[in-house]
């Protein structure tokens, strides 16, 4: 067959694996999956050139639901695995998926260092303010008075502000999205992938099973009434003073990404033994 058909432009469906997700009916993560596949279709990168890396939790099941290469590792360590992959294989598009427990609690330290290292990754965190897979425990973004079996009467501990922490730690692109707005979310993911360096997109994604009150989120969300800024002080003021439902790209930085391996070979390993020879 000599005639090679001109490939049709990819659609979101080209990036879906067809495996049936384990998520509950009504979970926000279905929409996030849809946004991810739409974003990849916008970028039009072949699925085999994309790796989706995750840790453990409901949201971390996403890699196998795509037709891309997937890596479903251990709890909290998606960012280091993705960092190693991207630095060693810079030609791949590497998307990292996490949740508020996986990404902000057990993986919290890696979040700080991924932001400051600024490897060219796109990090999406599906935040539903609860550990869903273990059936309803408070996470770092859960309100202090949220009652649960593990922390009756609430943890009494103030919740964590991921966007401020990302900004303070050096993330190069900071956005807040809502799963109920799949097209807007897809747009932001695509923008994050295109932007060099570490792009962080916090996606509010309701857990209707353990946090049914989050069904109300769709009424509370609103587009950020501001243009993106490259001034971190301005971005910080915005993020710290908004109502938490402000959707949009909130900061676009200009830092130089962490250098990937160049692969430039100056000598064979055997040449190094000269330094040992007497």
């Amino acid at each position: 067959m000599n005639d090679v058909a001109v490939a049709a432009p990819p659609t979101a469906a080209s990036y879906k694996s067809g495996y049936k997700p384990i998520w509950c009916p009504g979970c926000g993560d279905y929409s996030v999956l849809s946004s991810v596949t739409k974003a990849l279709a916008m970028i039009a990168v072949p699925p085999s050139m994309v790796a989706v890396v995750s840790g453990i939790g409901c949201s971390s099941r996403i890699p196998a639901y795509t037709s891309c290469y997937g890596f479903h590792g251990v709890h909290g360590r998606s960012l280091p695995a993705a960092t190693g992959l991207k630095v060693a294989r810079p030609e791949l598009t590497v998307l990292v998926a996490s949740g508020d427990g996986d990404g902000y609690s057990i993986g919290g330290n890696h979040f700080l260092h991924a932001c400051r290292r600024n490897v060219d990754l796109t990090y999406i965190v599906m935040d539903n303010h609860v550990y869903g897979m273990t059936k309803g425990q408070p996470s770092p973004t859960t309100e202090p008075d949220w009652d649960s079996k593990l922390s009756p009467g609430g943890t009494g501990v103030r919740s964590f502000h991921p966007l401020v922490i990302a900004l303070a730690s050096g993330a190069n692109f900071v956005a807040r999205a809502f799963s109920g707005d799949p097209n807007g979310t897809a747009e932001m993911i695509a923008q994050g992938i295109r932007h060099p360096g570490f792009s962080f997109i916090e996606i509010l994604s309701p857990c209707v099973t353990f946090r049914p009150e989050q069904r109300e989120w769709k009424r509370q969300m609103h587009a950020a009434p501001v243009a993106p800024t490259d001034d971190p002080a301005r971005a910080a003021r915005r993020i710290m003073t908004d109502d938490g439902f402000n959707i949009g790209v909130l900061y676009v930085g200009k830092r130089t990404p962490y250098p990937a391996v160049t692969g430039k070979v100056k000598c064979a390993p055997e040449a190094l033994e000269a330094e040992f020879a007497l």
């Binding site: 280091p80 992959l85 630095v87 294989r89 260092h113 000598c267 390993p269 040449a271």
Partner: peptide, 22 residues
């Protein structure tokens, strides 16, 4: 010199996962 790289990680939890990723 041989076309590779070394990355200093934030802790050993990171370093082991970085090499697994690579």
């Amino acid at each position: 010199k041989v076309g590779g790289t070394l990355l200093q990680a934030e802790d050993e939890l990171a370093s082991i996962n970085m090499i697994i990723g690579a």
